[in-house]
Simulated scan of single mutants.
Amino acid sequence: MDLKHLTALVTVSETGSVTKAARLLRVVQPAVSRYIRALEDEVGVLLFERTPQGMTLTPAGEILVERARRALLELERARAEIRPDRQHVQGIVTLGLLESAAELLAGPLLESVGRQHPGIDLRVLSAFSGHLQQWLLDGVADMSLLYDLASPPSISTTPVLRESLWAVAPPGTVVADDGAVPWGSLGRQRLVLPVEGHGLRTLIDQALHTAGVEPTITCQTNSMLVQKKLVATTGVWSVLPAASIAEDVATGRLAGGRLTGPEVSRTIVLALQRGIRVSPAVEVVAVEVVRVMRRLVGSGAWPTAHVVAQPG
Rank of each mutant, 00 (worst) to 15 (best):
Met1Pro: 08
Leu3Met: 10
His5Glu: 14
Thr11Tyr: 01
Val12Ala: 12
Glu14Leu: 06
Gly16Asn: 07
Thr19Glu: 07
Lys20Ile: 01
Ala21Cys: 06
Leu25Ile: 03
Gln29Asn: 11
Leu39Lys: 08
Leu39Met: 08
Glu40Pro: 00
Glu40Trp: 08
Asp41Ile: 02
Phe48Ser: 03
Thr58Leu: 05
Ala60Met: 08
Ile63Cys: 02
Val65Glu: 07
Glu66Gln: 15
Ala68Trp: 12
Leu72Lys: 04
Leu72Trp: 06
Leu72Asn: 03
Leu73Ser: 13
Leu73Ile: 07
Glu76Met: 02
Arg86Val: 12
Val89Ile: 14
Ile92Tyr: 00
Leu97His: 04
Glu99Ser: 15
Ser100Thr: 11
Glu103Trp: 12
Glu103Phe: 06
Ala106Glu: 13
Gln116Tyr: 05
Ile120Asn: 01
Phe128Arg: 15
His131Lys: 14
Gln133Pro: 00
Asp138His: 09
Ala141Arg: 01
Asp142Trp: 03
Leu145Cys: 03
Leu149Phe: 06
Ala150Gln: 05
Pro153Glu: 08
Thr158His: 10
Glu163Asp: 05
Glu163Lys: 02
Trp166Gln: 04
Ala167Ile: 00
Pro170Thr: 05
Val174Gln: 14
Gly179His: 08
Ala180Gln: 13
Val181Arg: 10
Val181Asn: 08
Ser185Lys: 12
Arg188Lys: 13
Pro194Val: 06
Val195Cys: 03
Gly199Arg: 11
His209Leu: 11
Thr210Ile: 13
Ala211Cys: 05
Gly212Pro: 09
Gly212Lys: 06
Val213Thr: 08
Glu214Phe: 02
Cys219Tyr: 13
Gln220Val: 09
Thr221Ile: 06
Met224Val: 14
Val226Tyr: 01
Ala232Val: 04
Thr234Trp: 09
Trp237Tyr: 13
Val239Trp: 02
Leu240Phe: 00
Ala246Tyr: 04
Ala246Lys: 08
Glu247Lys: 15
Glu247Met: 12
Asp248Val: 02
Val249Ile: 15
Leu254Asp: 07
Ala255Asn: 06
Gly257Cys: 09
Val264Trp: 01
Arg266Ala: 12
Val269Trp: 04
Leu270Lys: 03
Leu270Thr: 06
Ala271Tyr: 06
Leu272Thr: 15
Gly275Ser: 09
Arg277Met: 12
Ala281Gln: 01
Ala281Glu: 08
Val282Met: 02
Glu283Ser: 14
Val285Pro: 05
Val287His: 14
Val289Met: 07
Val292Trp: 10
Val297Arg: 07
Thr304Arg: 11
Ala305Arg: 11
Ala309Leu: 11
